[in-house]
Nucleic acid binder design. Structure first.
Lengths: 232, 232
DNA sequence: CGAGGCGTATGATCCTGGTCATACGATTCA
DNA sequence: TGAATCGTATGACCAGGATCATACGCCTCG
């Protein structure tokens, strides 16, 4: 794959003129990470924007109490750590690869220069950050719902964004441990295990080696509204 | 106050050249709201960016279960509803005035045009959204801490941003009901009342008609770490 | 003035989900 | 091959905070 084509994989750069993409390709570099490797850690100085070429990444914060909370899952085309570029010099969260991942690193300076000369790119970034804000606000608004509601909403959101089908059932091709799920929902691993194994038995969500199968979408929607077995 | 001076009150526009500020002043209008009035409602179509000239505003989302969650408090100079300008056509949340409030409304089109011609303004907006992202991420990461921890963190954050002093004690000049506090912390009003009246008795935070006095900052810091009466 | 409404206060009870403990299969490594 | 480690599973117990109920002071308005 040419460096130019590589740059074109990032949504943000796709609409740039060819000469600008070439410029990006010239100053950026590709970095690879294995599953479990850290792209960057909370508190690290940030000198470049990283954008995902392929693979998946989780971004998380660690609480004083030692618990992790996963703030988001990112994949191909997504920029990661943009906040540190525009807001501070240090990353406010940690990023860890969920699988083999390749990223493009664009030096902060180059990015800012590009933004000065190409205002349309700024609009793209503003839209990306805004989308992210809406997502976090939405999560925050439901963070105190019952556990089942939070899990159901999570799987529904995943299902709508990155579904393939498997036996006519939606398949979510992303490998998350029970601990990962707990870290996303803000529960303990026990609660995560209990709920997921119950949903497995009830034929709602099946856990596979490399992802999840949504076997009963209707039940999930029920649960996401809070009117499952228990009410609220 | 001249229209030009009015525009200058908004952080975002302050660094603009005089001619640009004049342009903004020409196309925007000032709108007033009384305490309790809505600036806009979740789901409304958004045609302009609103920036606060004076007063205070709460931005909130309503859960399906009928509960409100306050996503943020905004004051003089802050842009509100920027997300709807860059990401979607509808507001993702509701904004309500906490006191008499004056706002500047800049039509979406004008703002976008301005951004195209003045990239530095885009950087200002990117920074503002990034700051907001960090704030929400931080809240999310602590949303499952004990109630006392959340309340303590909230008051500390307020204290550091908008403190005046009263009898040498930090005073937070913002009038929030127990229900408002509950809506911020994601608890019920009873929990809010119980904690606040206890803290009042213990001489930690005193509730006044028009704000709060932090009487024992050290105790608050203790609680924010989770090592108050109970541990975690 | 009395009635009603609102914000605050406080007690009794219940239940979700956290905590602690134990166990079991699969994989790795000595 | 056996020990150790990791992810998953499941039970027993507990407590933080939600829920339900009642009450009280203050303000507004008829």
């Amino acid at each position: 794959m040419s460096a130019l084509g590589t740059v074109g994989q990032i949504r943000l750069f796709r609409e740039l003129a060819r000469e600008d993409r070439e410029r990006v390709a010239r100053v950026s570099r590709v970095v690879s990470f294995e599953r479990g490797e850290r792209l960057f850690r909370e508190g690290d100085r940030c000198s470049s924007l990283v954008a995902i070429l392929c693979g998946r990444v989780k971004v998380l914060k660690t609480t004083r109490q030692g618990r992790d909370l996963i703030l988001g899952l990112f994949g191909r085309g997504d920029p990661v750590g943009a906040v540190a570029v525009f807001q501070g010099v240090r990353y406010p969260a940690t990023a860890i690869a969920l699988e083999s991942t390749k990223c493009l690193e664009i030096p902060k300076k180059e990015l800012l220069a590009l933004l000065e000369s190409r205002p349309s790119m700024a609009l793209g970034l503003l839209a990306a950050l805004s989308r992210r804000l809406v997502y976090l606000a939405d999560r925050l608004a439901h963070e105190h719902s019952r556990v089942e509601v939070r899990y159901a909403r999570f799987f529904l959101k995943l299902a709508e964004s990155l579904t393939r089908t498997q036996d006519s059932k939606p398949f979510i091709p992303i490998s998350l441990s029970r601990q990962d799920l707990a870290d996303i929902m803000g529960t303990t691993i026990e609660t995560s295990i209990r709920l997921m194994s119950r949903w497995g038995q009830e034929g709602i969500v099946e856990t596979l080696k490399d992802g999840f199968v949504i076997k009963d979408m209707a039940a999930l929607i029920q649960h996401s509204h809070g009117d499952g077995a228990t009410r609220e």
